[in-house]
Nucleic acid binder design. Sequence first.
DNA 1: CGCCTACTTGAATTCCTTCAACGAATGTGG
DNA 2: CCACATTCGTTGAAGGAATTCAAGTAGGCG
Lengths: 269, 269
Amino acid sequence: MTPSHCASQAQVNVWRSVGDVASFHPSSVVGKQDRRAVNGCTACEVRETSFCGALQKDELGALARIHKRSELQADASLFYEGDPADSIATVTSGLVRLVKLLADGRRQVLRFVAPGEYFGFNISETFGYSAESVIPSIVCQFPISGLERICGIYPDLQWRLFVLARQELDRQQEHIVLLGRNSIPERLAAFLLHWASIENGADASRRPLMLPMRRADVADYLGTTVETVARTLTHFRRQQLISLPSCNMVVFRDFDRLCALAQGENGTC
Amino acid sequence: MTPSHCASQAQVNVWRSVGDVASFHPSSVVGKQDRRAVNGCTACEVRETSFCGALQKDELGALARIHKRSELQADASLFYEGDPADSIATVTSGLVRLVKLLADGRRQVLRFVAPGEYFGFNISETFGYSAESVIPSIVCQFPISGLERICGIYPDLQWRLFVLARQELDRQQEHIVLLGRNSIPERLAAFLLHWASIENGADASRRPLMLPMRRADVADYLGTTVETVARTLTHFRRQQLISLPSCNMVVFRDFDRLCALAQGENGTC
DNA sequence: CGCCTACTTGAATTCCTTCAACGAATGTGG
DNA sequence: CCACATTCGTTGAAGGAATTCAAGTAGGCG
């Protein structure tokens, strides 16, 4: 993953769509620097982890025909809160945050969507949140109407969608417990560990962790403030739990103790 | 709904199952005081609001054959955290709470499940929470394996299940925002209003609201403590927002102002 | 080089929790 | 029938964790 810069992330709400619902076809050739588009879904880098992964050739073709691919620059919006919720999306590269804004400006980050993960399963007619790229990202959208039609033809595609929605329920449930019953240090520890396992998998404890999002994003994800996030990170550093070579890089110095903290042992540090 | 008593709700973890997966059939006759069982699903009181609602006769029969009905006395558990998550359930009468326990005893109530609503969509192999009745309740469970089989035969049943899971995603999302970004008075106001609309629908503002759950349940749902819930209710009462004829009954005195509070206007009261 | 943004740190304040006591309602056993 | 134990709910006082307000630092970019 490309490390982002601490500063200078201008708010730009522009997105470019590459191929749309009508014209896109897996075999159509797009710009040379974008190998993914050349072979369409077949060469998609998250194909193994996606619901498309287990598809037969004809199913994949049907999906490819309805999908819409968007390239987002950093801090661009794919859609806004209130837009018609007519499609399910997956991130193929980059990182997307789902953000709910309250009337008085308070902000809740509902989720960071990593490559291979899905979002937009909500049932409401309009999205209850906006989807914004944290870093330059590529997103693939599938219209619900098209999915429903294809699901009629390929029943187990539908079951896979059901499974994805249910995975999302588990994720949200963890988030609820985190916000409802964990102290801020616990929340931050859990966040770092969760994020590390997504980024680095089994190597999470050894590899340095890049945090592409801003402090404000972390704070709004954890239900707290930038200041508290900064303070708690400093606290972790002083306790030798982590070190911070730069503000976007976390090196784990005592992974086990951080795990214990995330599990709720000595929640005040 | 039967009002519960303030005190003396002994913890009883016993449940009776009426009819099981193998032997139950819609036409089988059970005790005379239980009219619902006599006609099976056809006479189910939540049939209109359930996913069974739109079913054809044969679909309903297929569902009836795999379903398992349980009667729970107050504070009984349908299942515990860690039990194999092999079925989706619906509450047909009463009220069920889904509870997640942390290692050190902290408790998070994930949801109160009202009649006609579903739970257990989670994808994990084991439940991440226990399901307990708040008041005497009847719950109907459908094994996932059986559902998957039936869905192969009736594809739009599967789409309806998908829709239910997605509704649940929306609900949880609101809960996340509530816990992450709302003050305690805001959370409690939102809780009362949400609950009132479930119980009394359009009449919510005029009808008194019965709260069958304990203060501790409300507190653990809202991520706070019993004392704070009691204090905040007193606060609402002093501000003429509500009155409390008994500890389980809320009468709305200024519904609009309570709505405004829940929306975030003047969150500290 | 200076501006802008993000991040960090400090001090004061606020909100909420914790600890403790008390009242009300229910159920039990003598 | 009444004393007693138990549980739930309410209220008060003290303490603490996190927020708010404010200032200062660091790094990137024009």
